[in-house]
Structure formats: C-alpha cells, structure tokens
Simulated scan of single mutants.
Amino acid sequence: MTRLSQYRIMWVMVFFDLPVDTPEMRHIYTDFRKKLQKDGFRMFQFSIYVRHCSSAENAEVHIERVKRWLPEKGQVGIMKITDKQFGMIQLFQGVKRGKLPSGSQQLMLF
C-alpha cells in the first residue's frame, strides 16, 4: 500500500492564453476549456485550471491528455507541483494596500 504524502500527491496546473478574435477561435477556446473541465480540472483563475492527482504517474496521464488537446494558436503552459508546494501558495483577493495609521496608542493594563 502506498502511503499518502504531501510530496507524492501532485497538482497539475494548466495556464493558457488563447486568441478569441473570431467566432472560430472562440469555439476552439471554449472547446479546450470544456475538455479540461471534463477531465476534472477546476478553474483556479480565469485562464488557470488545476487538477489534483494521487501520484506523479497519474499526473503524467493527465498532462499527456492535455498535450493532445493543444490548439494550433495561442500559448499553453503545464506545471506539475507537489501537494506541499501547492499548500504554500499565497492567495490575495481584493486586498487594497493603504497607508498604515501613523503612531499607535499604547494601552496600560493593571
């Protein structure tokens, strides 16, 4: 029996930037996205899809499948990372950076 490990479990990330200038190009883009979704990929960001895989061997199966779907135009990147690395991703959503308040009031506790 294989022991589950954060270093054995893998994530496959697919990054893509496909042209959508014509109706035919939009159809190719939509078809590519639908194939990713049908294969178990979930949207991480607009053009980044991720899939959890139980092992590096399983990840390779899905990577080879994505390679068969590559459109003629545009750019597609595929990255395989461990579950441990995926867990270290820092995500920020809607965070506005503003000025820190000047000075702070010190409280006395008895």
Rank of each mutant, 00 (worst) to 15 (best):
F32D: 06
T82H: 00
R68N: 15
S104A: 13
S5T: 12
M25N: 11
V50M: 02
T2P: 11
P19D: 02
M13S: 13
E57H: 07
V50I: 09
I48L: 11
I9C: 08
T2Q: 09
S104M: 12
R3D: 12
Q106A: 12
K34P: 02
F15E: 02
N58W: 00
I81E: 03
S54M: 10
Q45F: 00
L18R: 01
S102I: 14
P71H: 07
M108H: 15
E60N: 13
E72H: 14
I81H: 06
I63K: 11
Q75K: 12
V95G: 12
K80G: 06
R42H: 11
I63Y: 04
G40T: 03
E57R: 08
K73W: 02
H52E: 10
V50N: 05
M1H: 14
D83H: 13
S5N: 15
Q45N: 08
V76N: 07
G98P: 05
E24H: 00
L100T: 15
Q37L: 08
F15Q: 03
I78M: 11
M43C: 03
A59W: 02
Y7M: 13
T2D: 12
F16S: 01
F41D: 04
R51K: 13
D83T: 00
V50P: 01
T30G: 03
G74R: 06
R65G: 02
Q85L: 13
Q85H: 04
K99D: 14
T82I: 07
S104L: 12
R51V: 02
G74K: 06
R26G: 00
R42M: 09
Q90E: 05
E60F: 01
I28T: 12
S55D: 01
K80S: 11
V95Y: 12
K73H: 11
M10D: 05
I9G: 03
D17E: 08
K38S: 07
A59R: 00
F16D: 00
L109G: 06
Q85M: 12
V66D: 02
A59V: 01
F32K: 02
S102P: 14
I28D: 09
M13R: 06
T22V: 05
K84T: 00
Q6W: 14
L36T: 04
T30D: 02
M25D: 15
V61C: 05
K73I: 03
E57Y: 08
Q6F: 13
M79L: 09
H52K: 10
F86E: 08
H62T: 01
S5G: 09
H27Q: 10
E64W: 06
R8S: 11
V14S: 03
M79K: 09
M79W: 00
G40F: 13
M1L: 05
Y29V: 10
